[in-house]
């Protein structure tokens, strides 16, 4: 079974600063990390491989330095890494990104075997659109399974798969046929620590690096800025909430008194909340009162 996991290198949101004057990202010293959501996808892929055999390929589109993230993915135990990098990709929006990745996935299929499952993370922490996964699925006609919290059954032979999907207000149990595109829900697993062997292999591994042409992309107008129907016209930093949290006065008050004044302040700001809580209470405390 061949599994491909799309991972993106993103700036660590914790470290991002905005230039107070020019309002642009101050990239100086902002470390990059693997998009945290993608690690859940990668770990799930590795588990499937360990259980059913096969290979895991990680794929990223980004600048040459995105290689670091790919190597990192290899230290966790991925078998192969593909870096899709080309100046033509600069400024891609989700449509252009999914086009480029879908093209690379086709090429990967030809070179290293058709993927049975393509994983993406739920979303990125910089783009944060959760659209690239569905975009890839549509372009490659893969059965789309988003927000998956658990893969309960998978049979590579018959190509059937059953998953639990986080839907609005409930859990959907879905069954479909492979090949499929799965976007993994956060918190659904814990990333492993690779062995020293994995780490050594990763450090020396040859990263497959493709330009647009290598990935078999002819129509460059579908890539990067030119291939992006959306255009970012304006960037600005959010109005910083000037006023800090209003602190409840605690001077020589007992915890109980503080608690009461907090509750007061709280209901004052949200009267509707109080009403609803009383409704809730009505259903809750009955038995309780009954007892005593």
């Amino acid at each position: 079974m061949h599994i491909v996991v799309c991972v993106k290198q993103v700036p660590d949101s914790a470290q991002i600063r905005v230039h107070p004057v020019t309002n642009t990202i101050m990239r100086q010293g902002v470390p990059t990390i693997i998009n945290p959501y993608d690690l859940f996808a990668l770990e799930e892929a590795l588990r499937l491989r360990d259980r059913h055999g096969g290979e895991v390929t990680v794929l990223t589109m980004g600048p040459p330095m995105a290689e670091d993230s790919l190597r990192k993915a290899l230290t966790f135990g991925a078998d192969r890494a593909v870096l899709l990098t080309d100046r033509f990709f600069a400024g891609s929006d989700t449509l252009a990104t999914s086009f480029a990745l879908a093209s690379a996935l086709k090429k990967i299929g030809e070179e290293f075997g058709e993927p049975t499952i393509v994983f993406t993370g739920k979303q990125t922490i910089d783009g944060d659109t959760a659209q690239v996964g569905p975009g890839i699925a549509k372009r490659l006609k893969l059965n789309q399974l988003t927000y998956i919290s658990r893969i309960s059954e998978l049979d590579p032979e018959t190509g059937s798969i059953t998953v639990e999907r986080r839907a609005e207000g409930g859990l959907q149990v879905l069954s479909t046929r492979l090949p499929a595109l799965i976007t993994m829900l956060e918190g659904s697993n814990e990333m492993r620590r690779g062995t020293l062997e994995d780490a050594l292999r990763a450090a020396r591994a040859e990263i497959v690096t493709w330009s647009a042409a290598d990935a078999g992309i002819e129509d460059l107008t579908r890539c990067g800025l030119r291939g992006s129907p959306t255009i970012v016209k304006k960037i600005f930093s959010p109005q910083p909430r000037s006023e800090k949290a209003e602190a409840i006065d605690t001077t020589d008050l007992s915890p109980d008194e503080i608690a009461r004044s907090l509750m007061g302040a709280l209901f004052e700001r949200k009267p509707d909340l109080e009403t609803d809580l009383l409704h809730f209470a009505a259903t809750q405390f009955d038995q309780e009162v009954g007892h005593g």
Binding site: L196, E197, A199, L200
Partner: peptide, 9 residues
């Protein structure tokens, strides 16, 4: 010896 599994070198 390192802190990784099978971590001798």
């Amino acid at each position: 010896r390192t802190d990784r599994n099978a971590g001798k070198v």
